[in-house]
């Protein structure tokens, strides 16, 4: 029988940053508490220590904490922390689901961050605009979805702020692979797809991507939990 390790291993940049932030916060807190309890004279040593406790260490916490927090917001786990996202994230995490979201979420390279990977903007400031939209999500979540039922069924229907761009798909599906071009439908509209006159989601959207979404005819739950006879698109 193998003994369980008592110290958790650090497996990612996020964990390393988190550990650094916690260590810096602990050092800062110790210095501050020492100052508040002992009330030493504000001599040179105290001032330098306080500069560390009130300046250097907290700045370190802010920097590493920000990056760590940003890294965490990329994860599907973070998206699923809002109940209104459960129809999307539970399906994405379901190994039995054949939806496009679930298939992409099983990809070992980016599956854990599949929401962000497919829905982030890809412009120069794409990450920034995506995160600003995230703040908008939070505002709507608090103002409109707080008491909207376990899957958000009583709230307004969730929709994208702007049309889904082909670039989000063609970033990986380059439209140049022989297998992709071999599909008659793809070959016939390749120029329109590249120009954006035709959308990938015109054929691959809706219930194919997020079958449990209320917008696409789902009821939020897995098919086995669906009400009998519920109509799906």
């Amino acid at each position: 029988m193998v003994a369980k390790p008592t110290v958790q291993e650090i497996n990612s940049l996020e964990q390393l940053l988190k550990l650094t932030a916690v260590a810096a916060a602990a050092i800062a807190a110790l210095i501050i508490i020492w100052y508040l309890v002992k009330r030493p004279p504000l001599g040179r040593l105290t001032k330098v220590l306080l500069l560390f406790g009130l300046g250097v260490m907290p700045i370190g916490v802010a920097l590493t904490g920000n990056v760590s927090g940003f890294e965490y917001t990329l994860k599907r786990e973070f998206c699923s922390s809002c109940h209104v996202m459960l129809p999307y994230t539970e399906d994405a995490a379901d190994p039995r689901s054949n939806s496009l979201a679930a298939i992409h979420s099983r990809n070992a390279t980016f599956g854990g961050e599949s929401c962000y990977t497919c829905h982030a903007d890809y412009a120069l400031f794409g990450a920034m605009t995506t995160k600003l939209n995230g703040l908008k999500h939070l505002y709507y979540y608090i103002t409109e979805y707080a008491s909207s039922g376990p899957y958000g069924e009583k709230g307004p229907r969730i929709h994208l702020y702007k049309p889904f761009k082909n670039g989000s798909c063609t970033r990986c599906h380059s439209t140049t692979a022989p297998n992709w071009l071999a599909r008659e439908e793809h070959a016939g509209m390749i120029e329109d797809l590249r120009k954006g006159d035709a959308g990938c989601i015109d054929c691959h959207g809706g219930a194919q991507v997020h079958p449990r979404s209320f917008n696409h005819g789902g009821n939020g739950r897995a098919p086995t939990a669906s009400a009998a006879g519920e109509k799906k698109e």
């Binding site: 988190k18 916690v22 916060a25 807190a29 802010a62 904490g65 927090g69 973070f78 922390s81």
Partner: peptide
């Protein structure tokens, strides 16, 4: 520090 560390341990959106 409390707020920032809380954000690390309980990373809810809010």
């Amino acid at each position: 520090l409390g707020l920032m560390v809380a954000g690390l341990f309980w990373p809810s959106p809010l």
